[in-house]
Design a protein around this nucleic acid. Sequence first.
DNA 1: CCTGAAACCTGTCTGC
DNA 2: TGCAGACAGGTTTCAG
Length: 287
Amino acid sequence: MPELPEVETFARSLREGGITGSSIINRQIISADLFWERTLAFSDAQPSFLDWFPGKVVSDVSRRGKYLLITIEPKTLLIHLRMSGDLRVAPGMTENRKPHDRFELRFSDGESLFFNDTRKFGRIWLMDKPEQLLSKLGIEPLSEAFSADWLYLKTSASQRLIKPFLLDQHIIAGLGNIYTDEALFRAGIHPLRRANSLSDAEASKLAAVIPQVLLEGIRSNGASIDWVYRGGNFQNHFQVYQRTGKPCVSCQTAITKIAVGQRGTHFCPHCQPLKPPNPAELAEMQP
DNA sequence: CCTGAAACCTGTCTGC
DNA sequence: TGCAGACAGGTTTCAG
């Protein structure tokens, strides 16, 4: 589920208060509980993972790609929400637990941070050096370093389809299925184009549009769909995602859905042509 | 290097 | 109404 904007919204909320409840910064932990063993992916603190927490204080919350980072000196608790993960801060009473709660950090003030995850794909790590995990991630699309030149360099060097290319977290960290479809539409690029077929101008357009879509998502507190996630309203800004058969906001052509790399992919066949007309063809069309 | 399929899971929606 | 099957915002692993 959550992509960069949703994870960023969680990070901000846990830091400053928001959709998850009030800030967890400076709260002291009195206990930790794990309700689904496999949620714990790996821990430097094993086998006494749960025993490590009591007495520690949360000092910061941040984000890298789709990972949420909770700093609890001298370690970092990393959380990846995968498809259905959710976080909330609420009174830490046993009767307050919800179905699918997988992990709980109980604070001395009576509230708890709950990690809820219906599909059990989400994972948490407790690490001394989070870089071990994070160093594999690609560039932050909202950083200064993410530029038109950088993207063109990368697309030029890859023969992959542009959609799986953008979804690859080793290249760009944070894009998921929604924001990829929305970015490709705004850039006018067909999802089946080869990365190295993009012109300099197309790569520039894509590099400009990706941060735009992500920032728009953050401004909307993310996207809420069905029973997954809440508090966001970016779903009201979708131009292609989940708009199969509906008219393109730009040309009225029906939005098409296909599978690309086993992911549902939405696009406008008119605004995102598979084969852009080349100069020679254009010349022939105008004798 | 690249692609596709399968696996990890549960809930919801669709169609017969 | 019931039920099988498809599908879902992600990532990893394996075969070809």
